[in-house]
């Protein structure tokens, strides 16, 4: 039982990271109908910004955190204007390829500046964790889980109870209709990119003290987060959260009870099973072609 509880905590912790990045995927997909393959690099860039402000410049952690998120908001604007906006009237394929290009550009730019060696970023707390009976609770994972829960509540409130959230929802559901109703579609898409970049950045900053700051950290997380969005139901916010958490728990238990080297394999096995038997994901709705 002790083993199960320990694995469950770790699985939920790592799953929460996938969920945060998956949320960014979903929001951009809903707004633009394209998958942003640079979402993982948002996490990586934010973690390096934290290293710049907190480690290199020695600024207070909270200030570095706020500045890093502000930097990510700016990156969201640049990404929207430089990658999505020029291609907005094209089909989804050029936009997807552009996001892959942007992802490579971001990774190599950081590599050129910081080099290939991983960097250390301290966590929020001095205490690395607490022992609760037989289970060790890593303080950073506790924070990640708490932030994920807070974001689920925030997203619900924001999208369901604020005018801006409803405008964003309207834009994602039908851009032409939203435009006819006087909503500035381009502004809404811009805001979506900003929010997604901040969300991705938040995931990167939170996970950096656990996984260290490296060029590969974004792509590693993004691949799992992408799988999580498909499992949860592409385009569904709740699905992204549930999919991320489920993936984290499945791969942790799979590694413990079946095979460690095939840990990543479990995640993608689940993904394949969903694509075959329930392609719309857990929360997605079946889409049928009209005759």
């Amino acid at each position: 039982m002790d083993l199960v509880l320990q694995l469950l905590f770790t699985g939920i912790g790592i799953g929460a990271v996938y969920a945060l990045v998956a949320l960014g995927f979903v929001l951009i997909f809903r707004a633009t109908n394209v998958v942003n393959f640079a979402q993982g690099e948002f996490s990586m860039v934010a973690a390096y910004l934290m290293v710049v402000f907190s480690v290199d410049l020695g600024w207070p952690y909270w200030l570095s955190f706020l500045l890093s998120l502000a930097g990510m908001a700016l990156l969201g604007v640049i990404f929207n204007l430089g990658v999505y906006y020029p291609l907005r009237h094209r089909s989804f394929l050029p936009v997807i390829i552009a996001t892959i290009g942007a992802s490579i550009l971001m990774a190599n730019s950081v590599l050129a500046i910081y080099g290939p060696q991983p960097q250390v970023l301290q966590g929020w707390f001095d205490t690395p964790g607490i022992q609760l009976g037989p289970v060790y609770l890593d303080s950073q994972y506790l924070l990640i889980i708490a932030v994920t829960i807070a974001l689920v509540i925030f997203n619900y409130w924001f999208f369901e109870h604020t005018m801006l959230g409803k405008k964003l929802q309207a834009t994602s559901q039908d851009k032409e209709m939203a435009s006819l109703l006087g909503i500035s579609v381009s502004t809404m898409i811009m805001l979506t990119f900003i929010y997604s970049a901040v969300l991705g950045g938040l995931a990167g900053i939170l996970v950096a003290p656990v996984l260290f700051v490296s060029i590969q950290m974004g792509s590693t997380i993004a691949l799992k987060a992408f799988a999580a969005t498909i499992i949860g139901g592409f385009g569904d916010v709740t699905g992204a959260i549930i999919g991320g958490l489920a993936l984290g728990v499945i791969e942790t238990f799979g590694a413990a009870y079946i095979s460690v080297p095939y840990k990543d394999g479990f995640a993608f096995l689940v993904l394949i099973l969903f694509l075959v038997f329930r392609p719309q994901g857990i929360f997605g709705e079946r889409v049928a072609e009209k005759a």
């Binding site: 083993l3 320990q6 694995l7 770790t10 790592i14 656990v210 996984l211 590969q216 590693t220 997380i221 942790t252 590694a255 413990a256 460690v260 080297p261 095939y262 840990k263 990543d264």
Partner: peptide, 20 residues
């Protein structure tokens, strides 16, 4: 005798296997 895949984000199952 335990193998692991490179770039693993979490080693909890490995550590627990060593412990057990």
């Amino acid at each position: 005798d335990q193998g692991y895949a490179n770039q693993s984000q979490d080693f909890t199952p490995v550590v627990l296997a060593i412990k057990q």
